[in-house]
Structures are given as C-alpha cells and as structure tokens.
C-alpha cells in the first residue's frame, strides 16, 4: 500500500519537473547535439557538405587565429580578472567596514556601470578613447602631454580590459558585499575581544568567511572572459584593424559562421571553447578546494 503511494509521489515529482526537462531538451540539448553533429562535417563553398569526423577539431589546434584568441583570453584571465576581483573585494570591504560616508550612494555608483547596456558602454568608451577629439586626448593635450591612441592595434586589448573591469567590478562587489553581510556578528565581537583591528579583521575573518563568494565570482569571471564578444564586435567599427577576426574565440566562432560561411568549423570552435572553459573552471575550483582541505 505505502509502496504504491510512494510510486505515485515519485511520478508526480517527475511530472513537476517534466516541463523543465521538455524545454531543456528542446532549447538546450537539441541545439547542442545539432552543433555537435555539424562540427563533424565540412561545408565548402565548392563541393558542398561532406563528413570529415574530427578533422575540424584537429584543424583548430593548428589554427593560429584560434590559438592567438585563446592566448589573448588567457592574458585577460591572468591580468584583468585579478585586478577586477581585487578592486571588487576592496570596495566590498570598504563599504562593509562602515567607515566610508554615503556608502549607499557609493554602492550604487560602483554598481551603476553594470546596468549600462554593453552597446552604450562601448560607444561611450569609444568617445573617451578617441585619439584627437576624445576625452582622454583632450585632457592630456590640455596639460601638455602627447596624446596616445588607445584604440591602436597594440593597445586595443588593454582598452577592452579596462571596459570590462569598469562594467563588472560593481557586479562582483555586490556578490561579495552580500556575502559579507551574512557573516554572523559574534565573529566580529570575538575578534575585537582578541584585539584585532580593521585590517586584521578583514584578512583573518572576513575574507576566509566569504571565500565561497570569491570562488563564485572567479568562476563567473573565467567563463565571462572566455565568452567576451560584445566588446570586440562593437569596437571593430572604430578599431577595424586592431580587432582581428579571431580576437577572442567566441568572436571568432561568430565570424566563422557568418562571415566565412564555415558553420561546421564554427561549431567545432564553439565546442572546443566550451571544453576549455570547463577544464579551466574545474582546475580553479579543484585547486581552491584542495587548498582549503590543507588549511
């Protein structure tokens, strides 16, 4: 008797999650499987479609555009992401310390860039970066400094890193700040009794307590870095030679599909990118976990 009830409950439970799975299968698994299928073929302008197995993947490993794009993303990962997360953590701690006046307004101001649509942000930065009539150029010429072209082929990557930092520092700060708010007050009292100052408190209590939040923002940032697309897609209009076809892997996949008419190879690149993201995220997660176990 109880068994049938249990079975009924199980069925009902499945019934409840069925709508999700239906949409998940149709909108996520099916397109993914389809692009996996596409990536095993090659569609040439002359000769049409033919099955090539894993040839597209092999090609990607020898494709200097793809590898350079990955390299560029890796550079962003090791320079821009630490700076951005460091700033976010600093702001979160500063706001949480209660020392800063008008912290509500500050919090909002730091978060505001995240709410600015990417298109607007890039247009705005395009103006700020302009070589002879841009804001930075006008200020630097006003004080007698030579103007630098921040949109030049060499500096465009740093210009993009700056835009991304500006846009996402507030978002990461909010995540960390929320985590800081949930630390129980007793810990602070205990630390104060032990004679800890604000710096010591931040270093030995706050940061260890919000480690999961920091890890979360790190993983999000890794995924975000590998998926950079808007910035190059929009800045290519004002820096047409600096933004190459394979500037970032994601942008490369788009160009392959819609400029080069090479949908199959684009699918392969997208899959490889997915794998790279999984591996890097997993390695980061694993290394932080093992560190925690050690300590």
């Amino acid at each position: 008797m109880s068994k049938t009830i249990q079975r009924k409950q199980t069925l009902v439970a499945y019934g409840f999650i069925l709508p999700f799975f239906a949409v998940f299968a149709a909108m996520f698994v099916a397109p993914l499987a389809y692009s996996g299928y596409l990536s095993l073929y090659v569609n040439r302008l002359v000769g049409g479609v033919s099955f090539v197995g894993l040839e597209n993947y092999a090609r990607a490993f020898e494709d200097s555009r793809f590898l350079e794009g990955l390299g560029r993303t890796a550079l962003i990962l090791v320079t821009q992401v630490p700076i951005m997360l460091g700033l976010a953590l600093f702001f979160a701690l500063a706001l949480d310390s209660g020392r800063a006046r008008g912290s509500r307004t500050l919090r909002l101001l730091i978060f505001l860039p995240y709410a600015v649509p990417g298109v607007i942000a890039v247009l705005m930065w395009g103006y700020i970066y302009g070589q002879s009539f841009g804001l930075i150029a006008q200020i630097s010429s006003g004080v007698g400094l030579p103007s630098i072209n921040l949109l030049s082929d060499e500096l465009i990557l740093f210009a993009i890193m700056n835009i991304i930092t500006w846009a996402f520092v507030g978002y990461n700060m909010i995540v960390m700040y929320a985590a800081l708010k949930s630390i129980p007050g007793e810990l602070y009292e205990a630390a104060e009794i032990d004679g800890a100052g604000q710096w010591r408190l931040a270093w030995s209590v706050k940061i260890p307590m919000i480690r999961p939040a920091i890890l979360l923002t790190t993983i999000f940032s890794i995924i975000g870095s590998f998926q950079i697309f808007n910035e190059p897609k929009l800045l290519v209009e004002i820096a047409p030679t600096g933004i190459t076809q394979g500037f970032t892997p994601n942008y490369y996949a788009f160009n392959l599909a819609f400029v080069n008419q090479d949908v199959s190879y684009a699918a392969a690149i997208a899959f490889l990118l997915g794998f790279v993201i999984m591996i890097v995220s997993y390695v980061v997660q694993l290394s932080t976990q093992s560190r925690r176990f050690q300590s």
Binding site: L45, D153, T241, G242, Q245, V259, N260, Q261
Partner: peptide, 21 residues
Amino acid sequence: LPFMEFAYTSFNETFGAAVAA
C-alpha cells in the same frame, strides 16, 4: 571573388593593419 565578406575581414587584419601601423 565569390567570398568578399571574408576578403574584407582578412584585408583589415593584413593590409589594413599595415596601414594603421
């Protein structure tokens, strides 16, 4: 060429980059 979309993107990366530099 029957693939001018690619030709122009490639132009930017090669000849165009040389002009800019």
